[in-house]
Design a protein around this nucleic acid. Structure first.
Length: 274
DNA sequence: CGCCAGGGTCTCG
DNA sequence: CGAGACCATGGC
């Protein structure tokens, strides 16, 4: 049971945006410049194409889910989310890709973030040999693009921010890899100096791109859930207040709990709308 | 058509 | 510190 995974939940929960499910039930994507095809077998990861060890790390198979679940709060909302998402893993994304996609995510639905991600790959990525895929564009290639070219990928006002951050990274002024040595607070502070990166995007980059499982992104969905189920008081709390008071209560794997609540809430609404 | 979407930034009190 | 305006674009 230790390495169980729910691929559907893991790849469709809004933490990563380019994976595609195929008719045979497997999932296809690229990590860096490598093609990967995976499927589920007996609740475990089966690598159809790609390096098993590399993908085992990408899918964080060494995260001990039972231990993580043991730290979740035991209220009905959390238990329902756990029941729905069991096997969802927080994957370890390439840092730049993760940061860049979440810069483009502000005030966008998950489906459109995916669309922008594919448009950027198509326009600025490199071909992945023998496939239809393209890599996620490097900071250098986005830094060299014009704002209009980025807007043509559907970015809207986010184009300027993505370009500006890409320029800081490409110039070497910012070293995202060196930032791995920073503690959580210093890393969050450093990320927030980048154009288009505020508290929420920084927490997403920390959680999905730096393996900081205590990071607790508060978006509109999480804020709604928190206010409804975890906040006793008349005044409407700000996202920052919610994060500060609840991230600690949710423990060292708060980010895991957050993603389970997020995915469960979104899927519940989709079912209700259908 | 109006509303909302995995928000950030700037301004003003 | 908190509240509001503004920013583009697409789905429903």
């Amino acid at each position: 049971m230790k390495k169980m995974i729910d691929l559907q939940a893991t790849l469709a929960c809004g933490q990563v945006f380019h994976w595609t499910d195929r008719v045979d039930g497997s999932w296809e994507g690229v990590v860096d410049d490598r093609l990967a095809v995976v499927r589920e077998g007996g609740g475990r990861l089966v690598v159809v194409e790609g390096d098993a060890e590399f993908l085992g790390d990408y899918f964080a198979l060494d995260d001990d889910l039972d231990e993580i679940y043991g730290g979740f709060p035991g209220d009905p909302t959390m238990l329902a989310a756990l029941d729905f998402c069991r096997g969802l893993r927080i994957i370890r994304q390439p840092t730049w890709e993760c940061l860049a996609t979440f810069i483009t995510s502000s005030m966008k639905q998950v489906a459109h973030i995916r669309q922008m991600s594919f448009a950027l790959r198509a326009r600025f990525g490199l071909a992945v040999r023998g496939t239809e895929w393209r890599t996620y564009p490097t900071a250098g290639s986005l830094a060299a693009a014009s704002e209009d070219e980025l807007r043509a990928c559907g970015l809207g006002y986010r184009a300027k921010n993505l370009r500006a951050t890409a320029q800081r990274v490409a110039s070497g002024e910012v070293d995202l890899e060196a930032w791995r040595d920073l503690d959580d607070t210093a890393l969050r502070e450093a990320l927030c100096t980048l154009p288009g990166v505020g508290r929420k995007v920084a927490n997403c980059a920390m959680l999905f791109g730096y393996g900081r499982l205590g990071a607790f992104p508060v978006d509109t969905w999480i804020a709604r859930i928190m206010r409804k189920n975890y906040w006793r008081g008349r005044a409407k709390p700000t996202p920052l207040a919610l994060e500060r008071r609840l991230a600690k209560r949710f423990g060292p794997h708060a980010g895991y709990a957050q993603q389970y609540l997020f995915h469960h809430a979104r899927m519940a609404q989709r079912r209700a709308a259908a």
